[in-house]
Amino acid sequence: MHKKNVTLKIVYILIGIALGILFLFPILILVLNSFKNQKGIFLNVLGFPDAGTFTPKNYPQAFQSLNYVQSFANSLVITVVSTLLILLVSSMAAWVLVRYKTKASSVIFILFAAAMLVPFQCVMLPLMSMGSALHMINRVGLVIMYVGFGTSMSIIMFHGFIKNVPEELEEAATIDGCNSVQLFFIIVVPMLKTIMITVAILNVMWIWNDYLLPSLVINKPGWQTLPLKTYLFFGQFSKRWDLASAGLMLCIIPIVVFYLFCQKYIVKGVTDGAIK
C-alpha cells in the first residue's frame, strides 16, 4: 500500500512538471524572441539567440514606442479604480442578498450567476451602441463597464464567504445602535478581508490584461492601456515581432510580480470561505 502511494505521488509530480513545462513554454519563447532581432526570429523562432541575432536594444525601443510611463499609468488607474468599485458594490450586494433573505434576493442571485454564462461577444455590439448613445465611450465608461462585467463573479464569491460568517457580531452591533451603513463598514468589512484580497487579485489580473473592451471603448491617443499600445507593433504590411516580444514582456512583468506577491491569498481566500 505504501509503495502504491509513493508511485501515485511520483506520477502526480511528473504530470505537474509536464503541465508546468507546457504552460511555461510559450513564455520562454516570448522571452527568447525579445532578445532577438527580426532576422533571428524569422530564422529560428524556437531557438536561443546567438551572437549574430542577440540584441538588448529591443527593450529600450519598445519602452519608448509604448510611451510606457503614460500607458502604465492609464492601465494602473483604470485597474485600481475598477477593482475598488467592484469590491465595494459586490461586497455590499452579496451581504444584502445573504442577510436579507426574500424570494427576490434568491431570484437576483440567480440572475447574477446566470450573467456569468453570457459571453462578452453576445453583448458587445449592443453595449457599444448604448455606450455611444450615453456618451460613455471614454475612460469613465470603461470603468463602469468593468464594474458591470466584474460584479457577477465577485458577488458569487462574496456570497459564499458571507454565508459562513456567523451573525452574532452583527446582531450585537445592531443592539448597540449601529445602523446598516455602520454595521457593514465597521463590523462586516473587516471580516471580509481575506476574500476581498482574493477577489481583488482576480479582477486586477483580468482588467490589466484585457484588450478587447478597451479597444472598443478607448478611442483617443493618450488614453490607451498597455495591451492596446502593443498593437502598434502590428501594422498592415509589417509586424515588428522583435519589438512586440519585448513590449509584451514589459506588459507582463508588472502583473506577474503582482501575482507572485499575492498568490497565497487566492488559495487562502477560497479555503477560508469553504471551511468557516
Rank of each mutant, 00 (worst) to 15 (best):
V217W: 10
F120Y: 08
I13Q: 12
P56F: 13
A73K: 07
V181D: 03
G52W: 07
W223C: 12
F109S: 12
S238A: 12
S129D: 11
I78S: 06
S65Q: 11
P126A: 03
F161P: 07
G177L: 06
M128L: 11
L216M: 08
F42H: 02
Q236T: 07
V81G: 05
G235R: 10
A113S: 12
K3L: 15
L243H: 10
I110E: 15
L142I: 14
D272T: 13
T55Y: 02
F25G: 08
F23V: 05
A133C: 06
L243S: 10
V123H: 05
A51R: 02
Y231P: 05
V270R: 04
T174F: 03
Y12P: 05
V143Q: 03
F63H: 11
F25H: 11
F109R: 09
F261I: 14
I21A: 15
I186Q: 08
T271W: 06
M249A: 10
S238H: 00
K36C: 04
F54E: 12
V199D: 08
I275F: 14
Q263T: 09
L228P: 01
L87C: 02
I86D: 02
K268A: 14
A114Y: 04
Q121F: 13
I155Y: 06
F120W: 14
M92D: 08
F184M: 01
P214N: 09
L232C: 04
V89P: 01
E171L: 02
M136A: 08
I10M: 05
F237R: 07
M145Y: 05
L76V: 11
L85K: 01
Y259P: 09
P56C: 11
F63P: 13
N5G: 14
G40R: 09
L142M: 11
